[in-house]
Design a binder for these strands. Structure first.
Lengths: 335, 335
DNA sequence: GATTAGCACTCAACGAGTCCGAGTGCCAGT
DNA sequence: ACTGGCACTCGGACTCGTTGAGTGCTAATC
């Protein structure tokens, strides 16, 4: 009853189930996979695997399907696969001529969803301390203004503020000039100090503090984290293995950025390379029938790309695709 | 066989079918709706309505359901409804404290999807000629730069360009200064002329033409049109009336912005107030089982909000919600 | 001791047969 | 022009046997 063979059986079950989406039985295994033993032996192994919680039967007299725990073992120890050459090429050509950060992210997410046939998610490169390059104020009607902050690392933040009382043009223009003088090229504590001084100077416009705080947060790494996704139709496509009523909550979770962001953060903490959450491991009811494969990218690996699909998914393939896209993104973003 | 009563019957069928999602029969109608006639009479009316193509039977000995043509008549002549007071309030409170154009759009689309329980779509306010307020260039590595254009109407456009050969810092800074001088406050033809002169001036940096063209398109109204949506889970939710395999193509069409944009444009041409496309009227295979209710907003009604759902949807309710959100958006965006 | 062959057993899936009733169309009567 | 009544249709639900994939167990074999 070598453990090795038992693992081979588990691997065969996972691969079989993923391929056919039907419970796999001992006989079929013995015949199609070259395991070199009879179906009876496989049955014995299966009994043990079931006892250990790696596989389960939907009902008596059906084949076995992997449990979350089974997939976990498979992913951790049994999977291995290279990325098809065609995919590698696709990544290069598809992403090479993006004009813009948005464009890069947009293309990546589409590409990844096509390669994996899953829902792809890309978290916007999470922002880090960066010097301020330019602050611009634009009047919007009489009572509001738009604050635009361009950072040295090519990020652009914008936000509207109320002006409170009417500000004369002259004061407005002076504010723009002065704040740029105070902020330009500065970061972190130095920036904060300079802006504090500016906002606190006598006779200052009443909305100076508001602007200052926007500029500071922008320099500190931007306002909010965002996630974009693509390929949601893959959830609904025939043979996804998800019931119609399972997919509505998943779509909700996706639109509910917060949930997804928290999950991705947790996964980032995992560390190395590609990390995988399987079914209930997502700790989220709506996602309990799905798995997520994610990899960090960008400098200090602060952002994440991932693919989300039914627990019954092609782990080796998705892991390879996610890894490849993450690598490529790192290269593009780091320049 | 007054036409009036026949229309009343059609209205009753539409309302009944929308409510229950089941074919409605003559008897049930006679009992629940106060039409003042017997089921036999209704049956006669139904026979005529069917002959005229307004209703159909899924199979003999089932009730009738409205056809696209039936819904069309209903929408054009028979529907009328006010927006629930609670919804009106929701719109005010929900949208009032948005900080930013993105935020407004984001909130609107969520709100609308909640009010209608459909997929909501909002096209970004489509841009119009506007003066340039500031052009900023940011180096990205040695070979690329980011061009940021802030327009007087509070739009921010950005795009990356390759620098070609190395540009000395000094030339770079001079370019920034000069282009701002040329562009600031200018629009349209004047802007184009000024930038042409700038780009053509002797000893100019090699990438000047690229920057100039970006600035011109930005001033002309921005780069691309975009659509955001929310509430896709409403498609999958139980009782949406859409089959599992119908919804995948719909999700694809949504992500395929182009399709949606073209459709919205067509609808905008329709003109007045709220316009509706029912089923096959969308002229799009993937959407043949869905309807879209859309309304224009913004100055010169150039942009659109809409709700998309199964043909079997609550038209009066959705129309009211879409109209209300469009009105509100107009007010916010026009300031 | 591990593997195999054989056998009895279980149970979802399938198809055939049956019944039920909502819904229809039509006709004759008011 | 409307209504009551009646015969007819046909999908949906329900039952019930059959089938076959798949199992667990035991005894024989390597």
């Amino acid at each position: 009853m070598s453990e090795e063979r038992r693992h081979a059986v588990l691997r065969a079950i996972v691969e079989g189930y993923v391929a056919t989406h039907e419970p796999v039985g001992s006989k079929a295994l013995a015949e199609t996979r070259a395991l070199g033993v009879s179906s009876a032996t496989i049955r014995n192994d299966m009994a043990i695997l079931e006892e250990e919680g790696f596989i389960a039967q939907p009902h008596t007299s059906a084949g076995r399907i992997p449990t979350d725990k089974g997939y976990r073992l498979f992913v951790d120890h049994l999977a291995a696969s290279a990325l098809p050459e065609a995919h590698k090429r696709a990544i290069g050509t598809f992403l090479s001529d993006a004009v813009d950060l948005n464009d890069v992210v947009e293309r990546s997410v589409r590409l990844l969803s096509q390669l994996t046939r899953q829902v792809a998610v890309v978290q916007y490169p999470s922002l880090r301390e960066s010097a301020v390059r330019r602050v611009e104020l634009v009047r919007l009607g009489a009572e509001h203004a738009l604050v635009v902050v361009v950072s040295a690392d090519a990020r652009v933040d914008q936000q509207t503020i109320p002006l409170g009382e009417a500000t004369p043009d002259e004061a407005f223009e002076r504010a723009v000039r002065d704040i740029n003088e105070a902020a330009q090229g500065r970061t972190g504590a130095a920036l904060e100090k300079a802006l504090e001084a500016w906002a606190g100077s006598p006779g200052q416009v009443p909305w100076a503090a508001a602007v200052a705080s926007i500029v500071v947060t922008a320099a500190r790494g931007g306002t909010v984290e965002r996630v974009v996704f693509a390929g949601t139709s893959n959830l609904a496509r025939a043979g996804s293995g998800l019931e119609a009523d399972t997919i509505a909550p998943v779509l909700d979770a996706l639109e509910e950025q917060v949930v997804l962001l928290r999950l991705l953060h947790e996964m980032a903490a995992g560390g190395d390379d590609v990390s995988v959450r399987i079914g209930a491991e997502t700790h989220h009811e709506a996602l309990s029938r799905t798995s997520i494969v994610a990899a960090a990218y960008g400098r200090d690996a602060s952002s994440l790309v991932g693919a989300l699909g039914p627990t019954r998914m092609d782990y080796p393939g998705t892991m390879a695709a996610v890894r490849a896209v993450a690598r490529y993104l790192s290269r593009v973003v780091e320049l």
